[in-house]
Write a protein that binds this DNA or RNA. Structure first.
Lengths: 144, 144
DNA sequence: TGTTGTTAGTTACAAAATCAACTGTTAATT
DNA sequence: AATTAACAGTTGATTTTGTAACTAACAACA
């Protein structure tokens, strides 16, 4: 199609990043949705606990940069599904230590496998050097 | 923090892309929100019409990959604000040709300027070669 | 101790996204 | 022509998110 204007939306980084992010998230999303009925916030919490182990909602909040209300709700849903347990911190009773149950851990392990395969498949589509550049720049952008 | 697990969330491409996309969208979002009270869907529609000129909602849908209900509502809001007009297509009366008004065009021009500056600022943080690789791979990912 | 400020997490309400069902129009098939 | 299917776009119900106000616990300091 002929453009009336020389600005290219497809090269505007925030737009392009969003398109790439949505597209690349899609098939992984289909899996955790179909398999466990999870939302994005939920798998993220699950992964944080799976990777780093027992931690509080506050810590997940800082690491993931998600808003605390999102985390609060994701934790509530994961608890309902018996994927995690909460334990009040004895030292500071405002804090709750969150920890995956066996079921939560099993779900994490399965989804981690899916994620690793998927990531490898994505990376395969490019040269290793390019992927390294991509990861480097994305890290940088994510920390702006 | 010590990891209990060797999977790295920060290197999982869909996660990393989302983080980078959210972060990089943030300050641009603040501008169109504060300046025009627009949502993301709305500036996208505005930009499609600004760049490509008169077109139907269907065409915006295909180009942007946004769901048609989002576009329908964004168009309705932009029309309320007198940023665009609709005209029934004489040949196929299901279609509506959308076109920016002078006010819509002015808003687009201003936001385009902001976008270009912002994009240049982001790109400046990296080497030109790296940016080229980034754009290339993002294009590829966006079209998966 | 009492007051004030801060923090972790929840909840209530409003805004927005999603999904399915709907209207009106065109195209295809018989 | 009549029927059926497909399509552009809208609307309504439900789900999810965002914002702000809230509770309960701790900290600092007079």
């Amino acid at each position: 199609m002929t453009k009336k204007d020389d600005f290219d939306l497809q090269d505007f980084l925030p737009y392009l990043l969003n398109q790439a992010a949505e597209e690349s998230s899609l098939s992984f999303q289909n899996i955790y949705k179909a398999r466990y009925g999870m939302l994005r916030t939920e798998w993220r919490v699950l992964f944080h606990l799976g990777i780093y182990g027992r931690m509080s909602a506050k810590e997940i909040c800082e690491r993931s940069k998600m808003h605390k209300t999102k985390i609060s709700r994701a934790v509530a849903r994961l608890e309902e599904r018996r994927f995690l347990t909460r334990e009040r911190d004895a030292g500071d009773r405002r804090l709750e230590a969150l920890e995956l149950t066996a079921a939560g851990r099993a779900a994490y392990i399965e989804l981690r496998g899916v994620a690793m395969d998927y990531d490898a498949k994505l990376a395969e589509a490019f040269s290793p050097d390019d992927v390294a550049v991509l990861r480097k720049l994305l890290h940088h952008l994510a920390k702006l």
